[in-house]
């Protein structure tokens, strides 16, 4: 049976493939690690009644080695895949945020350096302009 997969592309620089590992426990549950209720509502006292339903067992399956319906297998694999994608995208967002703040701090550093340089050179544009006018 084929398993679902996903590809993330960003221009030419990045291509990330997401695959299901059928032996890994994260692809054998319908309760994902990133798809639960937000912490904010839980802290406010929310009781979670919106959980996904458990995977459906096939009729006549043995409890020692449960077999699931094809759609339930797909749901479990997609839950794991969604977790992988969510974690990857969150990391990307963090990187983007850091880049942005680094750019901002670089720009600030450059501005201060320029200011100091101008002062050390003895340049004071406003005064010199005034002097010229006089």
């Amino acid at each position: 049976m084929t398993t679902p997969s996903a590809i993330y592309k960003h221009g030419d620089e990045l291509e990330k493939h997401f695959q299901v590992d059928i032996n890994n426990a994260r692809y054998k549950t319908t309760n994902g690690s990133t798809t639960g209720p937000s912490e904010h509502v839980l802290n406010a006292g929310q009781i979670d009644r919106d959980r996904p339903s458990d995977p459906k067992l096939l009729d006549n399956t043995e409890s020692s080695s449960p077999s699931y319906t094809p759609l339930s297998l797909l749901r479990m694999q997609l839950t794991g895949l969604q977790d992988d994608i969510n974690i990857f995208l969150t990391e990307r967002m963090e990187v983007a945020k850091m880049k942005k703040s680094k750019l901002a701090s670089d720009a600030e550093e450059k501005r201060i350096e320029e200011e100091i340089k101008v002062l050390l050179d003895g340049g004071d544009d406003d005064n010199s302009e005034t002097e010229n006018e006089q």
């Binding site: 798809t35 937000s38 406010a44 919106d50 959980r51």
Partner: peptide, 25 residues
């Protein structure tokens, strides 16, 4: 209906989760 505790509104993420998990039912 997705309801939240008193004093809280409904956040898009949690509302979407409610719909996702209840739609088939």
């Amino acid at each position: 209906t997705y309801t939240t505790p008193p004093g809280e509104g409904f956040l898009p993420r949690d509302t979407a989760r409610h719909h996702r998990n209840w739609c088939v039912r």
